[in-house]
């Protein structure tokens, strides 16, 4: 096993982690290392090919991969080491993380550690949805990776569960894969996104927004054949071969919990003070790991302001 040391170790190379790494270098820290468990750095924007990134931090709008690429090159240019395909699997002690990568096991001791491990959408199981277990069920995150990173076959008719910002991202991703969105369901009385975003997508992609409608059951044997829903007028079956569960975020907090950091029971995030420091001194949490979901630019600003505040 390898043993090493750095001034600052950042777990997660999404917008929050990379922005923090750049700021750390600017503030004069010399040995800064970012680790990322995926093969490519960038976090969620890496597979989010639609536009809508960068407004508050870079003052322009661009798509996810371009946004990620800007942060990655700025990080590398500022002299930060990014280790991809490298997972922080556990804590060896208060300020030491155990890593696994194709080059073996390693323990890194750091002066400070920033957790920027992001958040994910709850899937079908976590939402306890009744019905069969056929193929054709996604979250927006898994759908985007299938469509944009792997160009996989999806289907032809999709129903989207949820009507938040990310649900419109699902509509655009499905359209890119030539899948018609037949309906977007929300059990609330309205969608929960920006009105212009809904109007524009609904006009362009022609799906029905079904409010006050909840999902009762998934149908189909090997492949999804439809969903049974409860509408204000009663039960109904919508035929489809694809179901996308959107939003309903939960922080990816495994490492924080393993470290025994104090957690907030409601948000499932580590509890932090106004310097973003967790219950363990020298260990910080930023980005969507804290109170999901924020937009990427908000996460990046959180990352870059962390260092100017108190270091």
């Amino acid at each position: 096993m390898k043993v090493s040391g750095v001034d600052l170790l950042i777990v997660g190379s999404g917008p929050a982690g990379l922005a923090a790494a750049i700021a750390a270098k600017q503030s004069g820290l010399s040995r800064v290392r970012v680790i990322e468990r995926e093969r490519e750095a960038g976090g969620v924007p890496r597979h989010s090919f639609h536009t809508g990134y960068g407004v508050r931090d870079l003052h322009r709008v661009m798509n996810g991969p371009r946004y990620a690429a800007r942060y990655i090159s700025q990080t590398i240019n500022s002299g930060v080491q990014i280790s991809t395909s490298t997972t922080a699997i556990d804590w060896a002690d208060e300020r030491t993380l155990a890593l696994t990568s194709p080059s073996g096991l390693e323990e890194v001791t750091a002066g400070r550690i920033i957790l920027a491990t992001g958040a994910r959408e709850r899937g079908r199981n976590a939402r306890v949805v009744a019905g069969t277990r056929p193929a054709g069920i996604y979250t927006t995150g898994s759908l985007q990776q299938s469509v944009y990173l792997h160009h996989q076959e999806i289907g032809s008719r999709a129903v989207i569960i949820g009507a938040e910002h990310v649900s419109f991202s699902a509509v655009m991703t499905l359209a890119h894969a030539n899948v018609d969105t037949v309906a977007m369901l929300t059990s609330e009385a309205h969608h929960q996104s920006y009105f212009p975003l809904h109007w524009a997508t609904a006009l362009r992609y022609r799906y029905a927004l079904r409010t006050n409608t909840s999902l009762l059951e998934i149908l189909g044997r090997d492949r999804v054949s439809g969903v049974r829903v409860l509408t204000p007028k009663g039960e109904e079956v919508i035929e489809c071969d694809t179901v996308v569960f959107t939003a309903d975020w939960i922080p990816d907090h495994e490492l924080a919990r393993k470290g025994g950091l104090q957690m907030n029971d409601v948000t499932k995030s580590p509890i932090v003070n106004h310097h973003h420091e967790t219950s363990r001194s020298g260990v910080y949490a930023i980005g969507n790991l804290l109170l999901p979901i924020k937009s990427a630019d908000q996460c990046a600003l959180e990352g870059s302001s962390l260092l100017s505040k108190n270091w």
């Binding site: 994910r120 899937g123 079908r124 976590a126 979250t139 898994s142 990816d252």
Partner: peptide, 23 residues
Amino acid sequence: GRCQGFYCHAEVRALLENAGGAL
């Protein structure tokens, strides 16, 4: 696991399909 494929579904599917399996 916990995420039920949010992170790995597409990658696992790609490995499976490249080796001759199907979704």
